[in-house]
Design a protein around this nucleic acid. Structure first.
Lengths: 218, 218
DNA sequence: ACACAAATTTGAACATGTTCAAAAAGTGTG
DNA sequence: CACACTTTTTGAACATGTTCAAATTTGTGT
């Protein structure tokens, strides 16, 4: 049977992800995962180089689901504010079951060496996928953003979403409703803020900001 | 001798901080710290509840030094851009020896349970001290910022500094010169950006942004 | 000086992430 | 089938953060 190996891998991943959701990150020990999956600890490591790697697996799944739900949610929505709102809420929906785990997830993801780190060069693929979600939100909007912003807009929105996610991690209000409020307020603010780009005074500063951004990334 | 206990505590802290600087976070094991300090592992734990607690100690020291150096650096500097630049560079100077450790530091600090977490309610004191540095930078500046911004300005600057710090962690350019460039470009941008608050179109959006911020924090 | 309590120190023990040499199972070849 | 070779699986071993009961030292009142 060719799929036997893949089967074991999938089994371990499924068990791990379920345990992450139900028990949180720390309580889900590698031994517990192995036991629950009915394999040896070493076998789990044969498929996943580290516990962080299992987090990476979770990240991929969450991201795929976000991408899917966001694409659905923006159908027929024209204005940027609405599209952004829908996209961000979709993300929050997907992450919701993992809220208690979110903090550990962030701590893991933020380490430069982590395979999950979105800023890391190594995980360009994952970052691109994540960016693509916001490119969809931005590109489909009308009226379109100011020309000089168009290229960086998805990245800007993505960055805003990173901030929202950080807020969400620390949001202890029931159902994280404060984060929902934040999204509802932030999305129109961003959309309106972008329209300011046409005011001359703002425009000059914006040019400099974009210059700095490009300059400093090289 | 009354200071014996304090002496041991200080010894452990000193050794730990030096090892953090020279070896990085992971290589500095609790056993290594204890051995180097000539005490038992258990004894180190008598004074510091966890390894994270030693990171907290480092955080306090870095912050105190930043506060001191920043206060010196802004003397005689009137414009906000200059004051902000001086304050941020002072922070980078202080952190520089720990750059290789910075990533682990951030990972530790970002966990809500961490004593170092700047967003955490528990560490209000540390956060206040950190904010105070930027309050000094903002309050001493002339011309003063728009009235409605004055209250939130220190927090905004502090937040910007958090962003700069995050950038710094990932900055692998030699001597982190890209982060220096970022600060040099960002400080005047922020200062000029604030002056836009008086433009009517901008002002209205700003009001909404401040509303949202207050609303969502409650 | 002595007894007793409190503070300090010790080191073994535990849980967990991770590694690895060896065993087992699978696969193709004569 | 027998054999060699690869892939998969195992479980013991290791390093590290942390805990804790016991030992030691220090402080205090008599």
């Amino acid at each position: 049977m060719a799929g036997k190996s893949e089967q074991t891998r999938q089994l371990v991943a499924d068990v791990a992800l379920r345990m992450f959701r139900d028990l949180g990150f720390e309580k889900t020990t590698m031994r517990a995962i192995a036991a629950e999956a009915g394999v040896s600890v070493g076998n789990a490591y044969y498929y996943f180089a580290s516990k962080d790697d299992l987090v990476h697996e979770l990240y991929l799944q969450v991201q795929a689901e976000h991408s899917h739900k966001a694409a659905e949610a923006v159908v027929g929505v024209k204005d940027l504010s609405g599209r952004l709102k829908a996209t961000m809420h979709a993300g929050l929906d997907v992450m919701a079951p993992y809220h208690r785990f979110g903090a550990e997830f962030i701590a893991t993801a933020i380490r430069p060496a982590s395979p999950v780190n979105p800023f890391n060069d190594a995980s360009t693929a994952a970052r691109e996928a994540s960016l693509a979600i916001f490119r969809t939100a931005a590109d489909g909007a009308s009226p379109a953003a100011a020309r000089k912003l168009r290229a960086e807009l998805p990245e800007l929105l993505w960055l805003a979403y990173m901030g929202v996610t950080l807020f969400w991690v620390y949001d202890t209000s029931s159902g994280q409703r404060r984060t929902r409020k934040l999204v509802d307020g932030l999305a129109p603010l961003i959309a309106r803020g972008l329209s300011l780009a046409r005011i001359p005074g703002v425009s000059r500063i914006l040019d400099d900001a974009l210059d700095l951004s490009r300059n400093v990334r090289g």
